[in-house]
Design a protein around this nucleic acid. Structure first.
Length: 491
RNA sequence: CGGGGUGUAGCGCAGUCCGGUUAGCGUACCUGGUUUGGGACCAGGUGGUCGAAGGUUCGAAUCCUUUCACCCCGACCA
């Protein structure tokens, strides 16, 4: 057990906050709601980025970069879009400072007021579609498959490290297509990319589905999403992909000439994941001993720690350790040999355990004699003695095994915390005791959805893709329903 | 925006009610020595003007006024 570390049982929320800070992932900054992502946390984000970027490119996308600032007028062009974001926009009104007349510090120069205010992007649909207008003339210009890695700002009332910060890092894909069918296929394809990434890389099982109209992205015709279940029984939206119809094309006058020489509006999608994924990663696997990382996203996959009494021993051990390091690297495994003599082994064990390094290898005099090493795995905290023969293959398998184990553990947690409710009482009882996903009938109206949300604090997380149709009665209104949807309290 | 809380050394805190030597403690950090298979030990040492501004007083971390910031819970949201 780590020193001075709150357990999940004691206070889940506090456990999360302490974990993020003590594992050196991020810190609060001098700016309200904005975090500093520290090197260790950023290294994980870079791994997330690298894999997603690879997957985007494999599916035909290219990267570009659009401005941080968006002219205010752009926001009024798509009615529901502005409605969705208006309440959380940071606005630039001036472009110059001056010395304060009273000699105390600086003030905004009143003469430097902008003609038109600039909005710090909360998302980039508007500036991108304004640009696409000039890029798209013909069906030959389509599809346009662009992604951007960027920061965005949403002035949230209340923030939490990684889960909800005023500024966050993300990627946003914005694609333009000649047909509705193609755009829908794109939105669905990117949802699949996200789901695959979540499950195979983050070891987080997700459910794919579509949002109810109330929860839909501002300006979208259909919002697809993946939802994951955290250890405290709350759901977390891990990624979204939107079919935007022709809404933005019409708002920004983006038309093209089809093969048939007809002027048509372009069909659009947008899709994104953010540093919130870091929150999902942390909450899915970590325990009361600290962070637990899936091997595929761990900045350091294996750490080697020497134990010695004399310089001679250290030199022999280092020789062996470097051989092992080299063998592991040949398998593409990221290894760190920590031979610092400024910290004791026990201190290092705890340090790497808290930071979630998947595998720890210990070599001491005893091992030198026996031709062995001690191998400890972070997910189960089990220790074992390994013969050195083919160590790289054994560790490679162990890492795969840990990756798989984390996924299975998260999957069975979700299965054990997914329930069916057939009455309003049962529904609330589940939410108030275990939490988790609750599959229940809903009459399909936004009014009922709103009332359920107000009274139970649970929202419709999604309507699962390929949902089974089933006659039933809405748990709230008692009206006829054709399918169950998934409810949960959410982040 | 409503409710609660906190600002004192890098970090975590005590001291504040009831004003009074040189503002303490743990940890971290530095030096030396002994240690090293689960957060070592001993000795010595560095570091703060108490969130900010104003006021009361012979004297303020402590009392009064104003103000700023951050955190937590809620409403809102990826």
């Amino acid at each position: 057990m780590a020193k001075d570390f709150t357990t999940r049982e004691e206070n889940y929320s506090q456990w999360y906050n302490e974990l993020v800070i003590k594992a050196d992932l991020a810190d609060n900054s001098a700016v309200r709601g904005c975090m500093v992502i520290k090197p260790y946390g950023y290294a994980i984000w870079e791994k997330i980025q690298a894999q997603l970027d690879y997957m985007f490119k494999e599916t035909g996308h290219v990267n570009a970069y659009f401005p941080l600032f968006i002219p205010k007028s752009f926001f009024s062009k798509e009615a529901s879009h502005v409605e969705g974001f208006a309440k959380e926009c940071a606005v630039v009104t001036h472009y110059r400072l001056m010395n304060s007349p009273d000699g105390k510090g600086v003030i905004v120069d009143p003469d430097a007021k902008l003609e038109e205010e600039l909005i710090v992007r909360p998302t980039s649909e508007t500036i991108i579609w304004d640009t696409y207008r000039t890029w798209i003339q013909s069906y030959r210009d389509l599809p346009l498959l662009i992604n951007q890695w960027a920061n965005v700002v949403r002035w949230e009332m209340r923030t939490r490290l990684f889960l909800r910060t005023a500024e966050f890092l993300w990627q946003e894909g914005h694609t333009a297509h000649a047909t509705q069918k193609e755009a829908v296929a794109e939105a669905e394809q990117m949802l699949d990319v996200y789901a695959e990434f979540a499950e195979k890389w983050m070891a987080i099982p997700v459910i794919k589905g579509i949002k109810s109209p109330n929860e839909r992205f501002a300006g979208a015709v259909e919002t697809y999403c993946i939802e994951a279940l955290m250890q405290d029984g709350k759901a977390l939206q891990a990624g979204t992909s939107h079919f935007l119809g022709q809404n933005f094309a019409k708002a920004f006058e983006v038309q093209f000439l089809s093969k048939e020489n007809k002027l048509e509006y372009v069909w659009a999608t947008s899709w994104g994941v953010s540093t919130r994924l870091m929150g999902a990663l942390i909450m899915s696997h970590s325990d009361d001993n600290g962070l637990v990382l899936p091997p595929k996203l761990a900045p350091t996959q294996v750490v080697i720690i020497p134990i010695y009494k004399t310089e001679e021993q250290l030199s022999l051990i280092s020789g062996k350790a470097n051989e092992i390091k080299k063998a592991l690297k040949s398998k593409g495994i990221t290894v760190k040999y920590d031979d610092r003599d400024t910290y004791k082994p026990g201190w290092k064990f705890n340090e790497y355990e808290f930071k979630g390094v998947p595998v720890r290898i210990v070599i001491g005099p005893r091992d030198l004699e026996n031709g062995t090493v001690e191998v400890a795995r972070r997910d189960t905290l089990e220790k074992a003695v390994y013969q050195l023969t083919d160590i790289e293959t054994k560790i490679e398998h162990l890492l795969d095994n840990i990756q798989e184990n984390l996924y299975q553990k998260a999957l069975s947690f979700r299965e054990n915390n997914t329930f069916q409710a057939d009455s309003w009482e049962e529904f609330n009882q589940i939410l108030d005791t275990t939490g988790g996903f609750v599959s229940a009938h809903w009459d399909g109206t936004p009014e009922t959805e709103q009332l359920i949300k107000e009274e139970s604090k649970a929202t419709i997380r999604l309507i699962p893709l390929n949902n089974k149709l089933e006659e039933g009665k809405c748990i709230y209104s008692g009206k006829a329903s054709t399918q169950r949807v998934l409810f949960a309290r959410a982040y």
